[in-house]
Design a protein around this nucleic acid. Structure first.
Length: 400
RNA sequence: GCUGGAAUCGUCUAGUGGCAAUGACAAGAGACUGUAAAUCUCUCGGCUUCGGCCUUCGUAGGUUCGAGUCCUACUUCCAGCA
């Protein structure tokens, strides 16, 4: 995999580049649509291409039982029908979402009182070897460690894989984060060692990103960035890096700066799991190249429609005749769907109509975020990123 | 006209002596960030100094410490018989 940097921001961190994978190029900064199970919910591959998505992120954890079948068809790109660049998560997020964060919302709001789920109630438990968990779908016990995750991901065969990591929650202490980040580094080395055994098995080169944790502590973040940035197994390094963790909004930029000041400049960085415009803007500014997140699609399904002047709740009747967003080039808006017409589909009891709504709304929100990254790229290349960011945020957050 | 049955929050509905009164839908507000999420939370008679207060179950009386619940009359609706 090659990564070419075309331009760097004056701050020395943010940049414009191109990631070249076996299944195509990704012009960065870029947002990757999340298709956890190998498809983006309610969006067909062709629609995904049409709205400008350049890559799709799936999850090794969710696809683990299908991995052999996916390998047989030649890998995720073929199996999914997407055919473009793909990336898989290791299952590390589920360590938290089924473990300490079970039943909780992953929030970036400071005011929210955060507590960890009691140990005995968790579906996932961390040990040095890996993570034992109860599959929430069938109740069966299972286990994934770095080796298992790599074996699964190499069978799925995405262009980019994530090292198996432990995501801590906002409620975890400094002491626990030391433990977790050190374990994540040991897992990273085991991941790399296992990955290089299988990375060419499907006939094209699969790549591995090391994932940085360390919570909100500068020493942990800088150290792990140095460690992972320099890590080698048999002379092989990571192909890029995942920037992971649960963040408070106000800390995000600073944490990314700590990480990216230490990481090698010439390798791509993926900011895991964030997509609200302010997060993408600060992420790109601080040197993240790619992003993924479920929010655009999930929030669309839940009736939140993104617009340039702030998000709207589709439940409201008052603006039924309005387009979703006056300034949107997505297929849904271009087809002339109004807020009222979409609302009628959404609120109808008819499953087919609801599915149509989920499709139209997901396309709109996803296009909104993809377009944001396209515009960030243009703004960086054009030398007006600061102005673009300021103007975008001023309009977008004016009402909230 | 007779005989049954029924009238409860926008709608449907629970309730047969302690009730501002069940549930669902609708409505309103909020949440959601590497998807246990086509989900979840809150409000939903009025007022409130959040302790309560007031007005409510077709209408009007009555029995009772207490009535949406029991009794009487009336009104309307439904069914059957004329």
């Amino acid at each position: 995999m090659e990564f070419e940097i075309e331009k760097v921001l004056p701050n020395g961190l943010g940049r414009v580049g191109t990631i070249k994978t076996a299944h195509g190029e990704i012009k960065t900064p870029a947002f990757m649509a999340v298709g956890t199970n190998g498809y983006v919910r309610f969006i067909a591959p062709a629609e995904l291409r049409d709205l400008g998505a350049q890559a799709m992120l799936s999850n090794g954890y969710h696809l683990r039982r299908k991995a052999p079948e996916i390998a047989e068809t030649g890998g995720l790109a073929e199996w999914s029908g997407w055919h473009g660049p793909t990336i898989t998560d290791s299952g590390g997020f589920q360590v938290m979402s089924l473990g300490s964060g079970l039943g909780k919302v992953v929030s970036m709001e400071k005011e929210r009182h955060v507590t960890n789920t009691a140990h005995k109630e968790r579906l996932a438990h961390v040990s040095e070897d890996g993570v034992s968990f109860i599959d929430p779908f069938d109740g069966q016990p299972d286990f994934i460690g770095p080796e298992e995750s790599m074996q699964i991901q190499c069978q799925i065969g995405a262009d980019i894989h994530m090292a198996f990591d432990e995501l801590t929650s906002l409620a975890d202490t400094y002491e626990y984060n030391i433990e977790a980040v050190e374990r994540t580094e040991r897992w990273a080395e085991r991941s790399l060692r296992e990955h290089i055994k299988y990375r060419d098995d499907l006939g094209y080169r699969q790549n591995l990103y090391g994932v940085l944790q360390g919570g909100r502590w500068e020493d942990l973040r800088r150290q792990t960035a140095q460690h992972l940035g320099a890590m080698q197994v048999d002379g092989v390094e990571f192909d890029g890096f995942g920037l992971g963790g649960a963040f408070l909004k106000e800390d995000l930029g600073e944490i990314l700066r700590w990480c990216n000041e230490e990481l090698p400049m010439n390798k791509p960085r993926h900011l895991l799991g964030l997509s609200h415009p302010d997060d993408i803007l600060i992420g790109a500014e601080m040197g993240a190249d790619t992003f993924d997140c479920v929010a655009p699609m999930r929030e669309a399904r839940h009736g939140k429609i993104y617009t340039r002047t702030g998000n709207i709740n589709l439940r409201k009747y008052s603006d039924a005749g309005e387009p979703l967003d006056h300034d949107c080039d997505c297929a849904t808006c271009q087809a002339g769907w109004t807020r009222g017409s979409l609302r009628a589909l959404w609120r109808s009891g008819d499953m087919e109509k609801k599915a149509k709504y989920y499709n139209l709304a997901s396309i709109h929100n996803l296009r909104f975020i993809v377009r944001l990254t396209e515009e960030i790229r243009e703004a960086m290349l054009g030398g007006y990123f600061e102005d673009y960011k300021h103007n975008f945020l001023a309009k977008y957050y004016a009402t909230s």
